[in-house]
Design a binder for these strands. Structure first.
Length: 511
RNA sequence: GGGGCCGUAGCUCAGUGGUUAGAGCAGGGGACUCAUAAUCCCUGGGUCGUGGGUUCGAUCCCCACCGGCCCUACCA
């Protein structure tokens, strides 16, 4: 049996969950659901990143311990994911004991392999940011954010010898052409590596809220170095090694483009340094832009959309879980930036969900309920719809496999369109009850069944509802895809239920 | 300063190894009435950002420029 391990980044607890987080998480969820559907043993990991000075500061500001603070803020992400029906198998928090253990094991291995050394970090420090800048990233020696002069500081740190891994990384990229997708992002990573790699400081003495360095307890690891390792924590690295070898390295990380460096350069180098194969695939996605702008606190401060207005919970309350999932998956191709807007959601909702899918189910169930004695008839083996169905099934499956949910849904909707056209052409509403009518309606029901199967990774609730409305037992994912995707499997067992509209149209008032 | 991405029909975006550039939505016309004023059919000459270059020929290759954006070492 194939194993499929997919991860999202772990989200920084100081951020409030917003559509950007939801975008990544919903995509990972749909992909995980797809792989469960085809019968892969699947593990889907998400979680929260909880260390660092900013978290400690926020906790202090709120008068609680860092642990209490992260307990609270981490929970907001779980609530958001519950609202979006995210089927994660594991939710990792970097403050968990298992993570401390794996991080210490992993970095001890890197240390013992001679890739970590002690040096003095010289840097330009901004007191307001409490952070270092390089001369290049500064604004002529001034903080790019605060504009105040940076002060020369130095701190004794442990360094990771990233510079030693440029060649191995280039070789790895060469030998694994699909390591990073899409290709433009792969090129970016390669350009960065070719531009030369500097060693990176991976510990701090000035911060307490972090994972202690096992061989030097005055230091804690800097957040990013412990954060990346979460992917291994969840599969038992250093604790249950048989689990690790089951899920690694044939794994997939889904990450936003802004953290490409960490995942496509540092992380594979860190794995190599620990004597571990790097992950096999990093899928980079773009951003959802609102009014052409990145989602950020600054955007909110500038009077645009409030982040709280586009929190996952607010959106699912307004539009429903499946419509939001559908929109996030369908509107943008993974890898490119996309637009996010209420108008966009409404348009997708009304056209794709209400007019095409919802209306198809409504017209078919009505006819079957009134003219076919209530129970759905069987499809015809040689139906002309069967070829459209086979095409949709093939295209959708291929798209899901290549991390293209938008294309998978596009292909699926092709079958919906073909079915609507088929009904127009046959006009079953003009037919008297009998074999001819039954044949047409059986075909339409079969197409709807297939659509339910193909779309279930994206919109599981609605697909299950449709499944029962067309008189089937169980749910679309009960059978393995290889069987359920075959034309001709529909057999009505229960009477067809007309039911309320699946997606009542949204009317927009223009005020 | 350095590195990179993007700029294709009103809108959102595909696309190619260089020859006749596509889809959805919106718009226009028609058909139908089972259905959620839904559906189906027909309808797309847009300098493929600008200016050069390479070439028999470039939207796709090279250079420059303009515009939008990202990274530059803790924002999906």
């Amino acid at each position: 049996m194939a194993h499929y391990y997919i991860t999202t980044p772990i989200y920084y607890v100081n951020d409030a969950p917003h559509v950007g987080h939801a975008y990544c998480t919903v995509n990972a969820d749909a992909l995980a659901r797809w792989h469960r559907l085809v019968g892969d043993e699947t593990k889907f990991l998400t979680g929260t990143d909880e260390h660092g000075q900013k978290v400690a500061d926020a906790a202090a500001l709120n008068g609680v311990s860092p642990q209490e603070w992260t307990d609270r803020t981490s929970a907001r992400f779980r609530e958001a994911w519950d609202a979006l029906d995210i089927s994660y198998d594991d939710f990792i928090r970097t403050t968990e004991p298992r993570h401390y253990e794996t991080v210490q094991r992993f970095l001890t291995a890197v240390y013992e392999n001679g890739h970590i050394y002690k040096d003095v970090y010289h840097g330009l420090y901004c007191v307001s940011c409490e952070d270092y800048y390089t001369l290049e990233s500064s604004d002529e020696g001034r903080c790019p954010i605060h504009g105040r002069a940076l002060t020369e500081m130095q701190e004794e740190n442990w360094f990771f010898r990233l510079s030693a891994f440029a060649e191995p990384l280039l070789r790895y990229y060469e030998e694994h052409p699909d390591f990073v997708t899409p290709e433009t992002k792969r090129n970016e990573a390669l350009a960065f590596i070719r531009g030369g790699l500097r060693d990176i400081s991976i510990t701090r003495t000035s911060i307490a809220w972090g994972i202690p360095v096992p061989w030097d307890d005055r230091h804690v690891f800097y957040v990013w170095y412990d954060a990346l390792i979460n992917y291994l924590t969840a599969i038992g690295y250093g604790r249950e090694d048989d689990q690790t070898s089951t899920w690694w390295p044939v794994s997939h990380h889904l990450v936003g483009k802004e953290i490409l460096r960490f995942h496509c350069v540092w992380w594979p180098a860190m794995c190599m340094a620990a004597g571990l194969d790097p992950v096999h695939h990093v899928q980079v996605h773009g951003w959802l832009l609102v009014g052409g702008q990145k989602l950020s606190k600054t955007m909110a401060a500038e009077g645009g959309v409030k982040l709280s207005d586009i929190s996952p919970v607010v959106l699912t309350d307004e539009f429903g879980v499946d419509p939001i999932r559908y929109y996030l998956l369908r509107e943008t191709s993974l890898g490119n930036d996309g637009d996010f807007s209420h108008e966009g959601i409404t348009a997708r909702y009304n056209t794709d969900l209400a007019n095409n899918l919802g209306n198809l189910v409504a017209r078919v169930t009505t006819i079957v309920a009134t003219k076919c004695a209530g129970v759905g008839p069987a499809p015809q083996p040689g139906s002309e719809l069967a070829s459209a169905a086979r095409q949709a099934v093939g295209a959708a499956a291929a798209a899901w496999d290549r991390f293209a949910p938008h294309a998978a849904l596009e292909a699926t909707w092709g079958l919906i369109t073909a079915t609507n056209a088929y009904l127009e052409q046959r006009a079953p509403w003009k037919m008297s009850p009998g074999d001819e009518l039954d044949a047409v309606m059986g075909d339409a029901l079969e197409a709807i069944r297939l659509v339910s199967v193909l779309a279930t990774p994206a919109i599981p609730h609605v697909c299950a509802t449709i499944w029962s409305r067309i008189g089937l037992e169980g749910a679309p994912g009960d059978e393995t895809f290889a069987d359920s995707a075959q034309w001709g499997r529909y057999r009505g067992v229960h009477p067809i239920v007309k039911g309320e509209p699946l997606f009542p149209r949204i009317t927009v008032s223009d005020d």
